[in-house]
Amino acid sequence: MMNDARDLYVELHIPPEWSRIDPVRQAVGLCVAAVLGSEDLRDALGMVCAELLENAIKYGTSDPHGVRLVLQQSIQGNQKEVILSVINAVERTSHHLTALQQRIEWIRSYKTPAEAYMAALTMVYERAEDHGGEGGLGLVRIAYEGGCQLDCDSPAEGYMAVHARCLVPMSDRDLT
């Protein structure tokens, strides 16, 4: 039987507390392993989830609804696409909004996510030599190690959604 998109749909609302990230990372990883049967995808999407939640908590603003996370799959031709979206409230004037968009554009400007990741690692090393600031690896790691395409949009005034999409080949079971 052909799997349909609803084989995987999880929606969580999480208080913006750092201690909630790791249990959600594990839960998302286990859901992925349960439906798609892959330990590599479990680890990859667990990591993607943790990096996105870290950002939502670090750069978002407080919101009574908390941080919203949606994990779902859709069918794209003969491939499945797993989509992990994290939505957080954000100040309309926050400089993080442009930083986020620019970072995603920057990643796309490289031929491959691996090249973007190597470039980001080198920048961190060079900043360490200059005793400069830190960070900037989360999103590019999602692209390289997580094998995900990133994009962002604003689903409603004052909210930011970051989507990570990952293509998964159909297994023989899916196609019978």
Partner: peptide
Amino acid sequence: EHFNSSTITAIIQLIQEARS
């Protein structure tokens, strides 16, 4: 089991400092 990207930054800083 798992590390976050800020840990990778800390490891890169260690690599840089060890080399220096």
